[in-house]
Design a protein around this nucleic acid. Structure first.
Length: 248
DNA sequence: CGCATGGCCCTTA
DNA sequence: TTAAGGGCCATGC
């Protein structure tokens, strides 16, 4: 018998745990529709922690988080709109457990607008680690919340699609669904064009930047690298911010 | 111009 | 503690 108040308190909890304790410890899961098929989504009391596609959701969750998993009665607030519109407003994410580097990578990825793509090197620079390009790839490979943090919008600097947690084909389907003209990106890359400039605005952009898409053909100029664009008198677009990545 | 090869750096085993 | 390897990148034939 102990009179220790802490121990007696803990013993009481074990017998009669308050609902809040369960919610602190366990995660809740739901299945929701997405453009690439059904997703399994796990949330804690802090927000969405895990998005899974395909088989083996429960096993993968247990292996990664090691906490109890219970069914939820409904999707967490903001999840369905976020999947539909790509807007995260009103949706909380639980990204505890990620390293500072991973978090800064995901923060950078969240800057990429729907319908546009950026290179891995751009993400590395925005995350404050311009040379950690491969590490960005590794960090995105373990992105716990794909689609919500849109890592499918990060593509290779040579114009190829690059890898994806849910497979490259899924990545391409998502991008096409958002209106990214992958054929055009590839055609430009085939001509070694990775930047587009407008001689009416004097601005140079990534090809998928919404500003670049409005350049009239007569005023459009393609560049292989930013140095050449700068030499021709163009300054980087303040929206898509080319030049945060390493020079080609 | 296509391919190979170092380089880089964060994570995991 | 260290070593190996990854959703990459730039260079050099």
């Amino acid at each position: 018998m102990t009179q220790d108040p802490l121990l007696t308190g803990l013993a009481a909890l074990a017998v009669d745990a308050p609902e809040s304790l369960l919610e602190r410890i366990a995660a809740r899961w739901v299945r929701v529709p997405a453009p690439i098929g059904e997703l399994s989504v796990a949330s804690t009391d802090q927000g969405v922690a895990y998005v899974h596609h395909g088989e083996g959701f429960a096993e993968a969750f247990r292996k990664r988080f090691g906490r109890p998993l219970l069914p939820a009665t409904r999707p967490p607030a903001g999840l369905l709109p976020a999947l539909r519109t790509g807007r995260l407003a009103g949706l909380r994410l639980d990204l505890r457990g990620l390293s500072p580097f991973q978090r800064s990578v995901l923060d950078a990825v969240r800057e990429i607008p729907r319908g546009e793509v950026r290179p891995y090197s751009w993400v590395a620079a925005r995350a404050g680690r311009p040379k950690a390009v491969r590490a960005v790839g590794a960090a995105l490979a373990s992105n716990p919340v794909p689609l919500l943090v849109p890592c499918h919008r990060v593509t290779r600097s040579d114009g190829m699609t690059g890898g994806y947690v849910f497979g490259t084909p899924a990545k391409e389907r998502l991008l096409l669904g958002e209106g990214v003209d992958l054929d055009r990106v590839r055609a430009l890359a085939g001509e070694r064009v990775f930047y587009l400039a407008s001689d009416t605005t004097g601005v140079v952009c990534f090809p998928t930047c919404h500003n670049a898409r409005r350049i009239t053909p007569a005023h459009r100029h393609g560049f292989r690298d930013l140095a050449q664009a700068r030499a021709a008198g163009y300054r980087p677009c303040r929206t898509c911010r080319p030049g945060q990545e390493a020079v080609r």
